[in-house]
Amino acid sequence: MRSWHVERIASRFIQLVIGLIFVAGVYTRNLSVVVNALLALAATFLPAILRRDWQIRLHPFLGMWLTTAVLLHAIGMLGPYHYIHWWDHVTHTLSASVVAAVGYTAARAIEAHTDAVHFPRQFMFVYILLFTLAVGVFWEVLEFGARLAAEAAGTEAVLVQYGLDDTLVDLIFDSVGAVLVALFGTATLSDTIDSLTERLEQTRP
Results as ranks from 00 to 15, higher is better:
residue 188 T to Q: 11
residue 196 L to H: 04
residue 50 L to K: 01
residue 153 A to Y: 03
residue 200 L to W: 09
residue 43 A to H: 03
residue 151 E to D: 15
residue 103 G to V: 06
residue 119 F to H: 01
residue 84 I to T: 12
residue 182 A to M: 07
residue 57 R to G: 11
residue 8 R to V: 06
residue 2 R to T: 15
residue 80 P to T: 08
residue 92 H to Y: 06
residue 136 G to M: 01
residue 49 I to L: 13
residue 4 W to F: 08
residue 9 I to D: 11
residue 173 F to Y: 15
residue 1 M to K: 05
residue 184 F to D: 04
residue 24 A to F: 03
residue 170 D to I: 09
residue 22 F to M: 11
residue 117 V to S: 01
residue 19 G to C: 02
residue 115 D to T: 14
residue 168 L to H: 04
residue 191 D to F: 07
residue 202 Q to A: 11
residue 148 L to Y: 08
residue 45 F to M: 11
residue 93 T to S: 10
residue 79 G to S: 08
residue 144 F to N: 04
residue 176 V to Y: 00
residue 187 A to H: 15
residue 89 H to F: 11
residue 201 E to Q: 14
residue 69 A to Y: 00
residue 68 T to M: 10
residue 113 H to F: 13
residue 187 A to R: 15
residue 69 A to M: 04
residue 120 P to L: 06
residue 25 G to E: 05
residue 200 L to D: 12
residue 157 A to C: 07
residue 88 D to I: 09
residue 178 A to D: 05
residue 120 P to D: 07
residue 118 H to A: 13
residue 107 A to S: 13
residue 118 H to N: 12
residue 73 H to T: 10
residue 41 L to W: 05
residue 84 I to C: 09
residue 156 E to N: 08
residue 111 E to A: 07
residue 78 L to E: 12
residue 138 F to I: 12
residue 103 G to A: 05
residue 120 P to V: 07
residue 82 H to Y: 11
residue 108 R to H: 07
residue 115 D to S: 14
residue 147 R to H: 11
residue 57 R to L: 12
residue 172 I to P: 03
residue 146 A to K: 02
residue 186 T to E: 15
residue 183 L to Q: 05
residue 186 T to W: 02
residue 34 V to L: 08
residue 155 T to G: 02
residue 55 Q to E: 15
residue 42 A to W: 01
residue 110 I to G: 03
residue 111 E to Q: 13
residue 21 I to V: 14
residue 18 I to R: 00
residue 63 G to E: 06
residue 72 L to S: 04
residue 192 T to Y: 02
residue 9 I to E: 13
residue 65 W to M: 09
residue 162 Y to V: 09
residue 149 A to N: 14
residue 171 L to D: 06
residue 173 F to G: 03
residue 114 T to Y: 00
residue 17 V to A: 06
residue 63 G to Y: 01
residue 176 V to C: 05
residue 172 I to N: 02
residue 108 R to Y: 04
residue 30 N to T: 14
residue 13 F to A: 14
residue 140 E to L: 00
residue 139 W to T: 05
residue 150 A to M: 10
residue 135 V to C: 05
residue 150 A to W: 06
residue 63 G to C: 09
residue 135 V to E: 02
residue 55 Q to V: 08
residue 117 V to L: 14
residue 97 S to E: 07
residue 205 P to I: 13
residue 96 A to Q: 01
residue 176 V to M: 02
residue 123 F to G: 13
residue 146 A to N: 14
residue 47 P to E: 06
residue 139 W to K: 01
residue 161 Q to S: 14
residue 162 Y to N: 13
